[in-house]
């Protein structure tokens, strides 16, 4: 029952992402005015900026879930952190690739050793390492806690990447919307196209994370690594007081699949 509710909520989230994307694309490619100096290539910003925003939001999500894991909160926080990290890596790679295409047009080079570009590339490498760290063998509880520490450490790089354009002299332009003075120097229709694209990416990202968490949960329950609440079997062994281990404590709890059948 819980699962069918989750499926319906997920379907609505996915549908909302598609609807907003269908609105965002014509807004970005047709309705938004042509940039006076950059011309048409500026329209790539309506895909580049949302990708970077989604990556930063995903890495922020990894950090929050990492705190929950370290505080031993019950819930699928580790799975959410993993799914968000995957999303963040994909979006960072996309932002870098799109920025490179745009940079070749605007700057004449595919890559520059610029603080924003380097700090973003560092983010990408760090979270690829985070995902690699997660795949190392070991006790699930220890792997989760190790990943949580890494997720928190790497999160420091997110504000560095965002503020790099303000802290150092860069080729990359400073933020247009998320700037210290809350008066974005951008035409209203351009801002509308940008915010709609950001909303589409954010919704699609939330849909991916939610769906991926369900997928990871299913894999874990079928392999006996975690129960349906996302609690690692290994952690239960560590936390449980051996003296309190009675036959009653081994009572079988239904998995999500069993609940669904019921």
């Amino acid at each position: 029952m819980v699962r069918s509710w989750a499926s319906r909520a997920g379907a609505r989230l996915g549908l909302a992402a598609v609807v907003v994307a269908v609105v965002a694309v014509p807004l970005a490619l047709v309705v938004a005015p042509r940039a006076a100096i950059q011309g048409e290539p500026q329209r790539l910003m309506y895909a580049h900026v949302p990708a970077a925003w989604t990556a930063f939001a995903a890495f922020g999500c990894v950090a929050l879930c990492s705190v929950a894991v370290l505080l031993r909160r019950r819930g699928p926080y580790d799975a959410v952190a993993r799914a968000a990290a995957e999303l963040g890596v994909a979006m960072t790679a996309l932002a870098i690739a799109e920025g490179s295409v745009w940079g070749h047009s605007a700057w004449g080079v595919w890559w520059a050793w610029d603080p924003r570009l380097v700090s973003t590339a560092l983010l990408l490498v760090s979270y690829v390492a985070y995902l690699a760290l997660r795949s190392l063998p070991g006790d699930p509880e220890r792997v989760h806690r190790r990943a949580a520490v890494a997720g928190l450490v790497f999160a420091v790089e997110v504000p560095v990447a965002h503020f790099s354009v303000l802290w150092w002299r860069t080729l990359h332009q400073p933020p247009t919307v998320l700037r210290p003075s809350l008066s974005p120097p951008i035409a209203p229709l351009m801002l509308l196209a940008l915010l709609t694209s950001v909303a589409a990416f954010t919704l699609a990202g939330a849909w991916y994370v939610r769906r991926r968490v369900l997928q990871l949960g299913d894999r874990a329950t079928s392999s006996g690594v975690v129960d349906h609440r996302g609690v690692a079997a290994g952690s239960a062994r560590i936390i449980a007081d051996p003296d309190s281990m009675t036959p009653a404590s081994t009572t079988h709890e239904p998995t999500t699949a069993e609940e669904t059948r019921a």
């Binding site: 790539l44 580049h48 994909a90 996309l94």
Partner: peptide
């Protein structure tokens, strides 16, 4: 690359990445 080609390549990249992400979670029913 200039003009609309830059935009087309960028949006194509976005579509490929999102399609890959969607395929990851849709290939197996959760």
């Amino acid at each position: 690359m200039t003009g609309w080609t830059v935009v087309a390549v960028g949006y194509l990249l976005a579509m490929v990445v999102w399609a890959a992400l969607a395929w990851t979670v849709l290939r197996r029913r959760p």
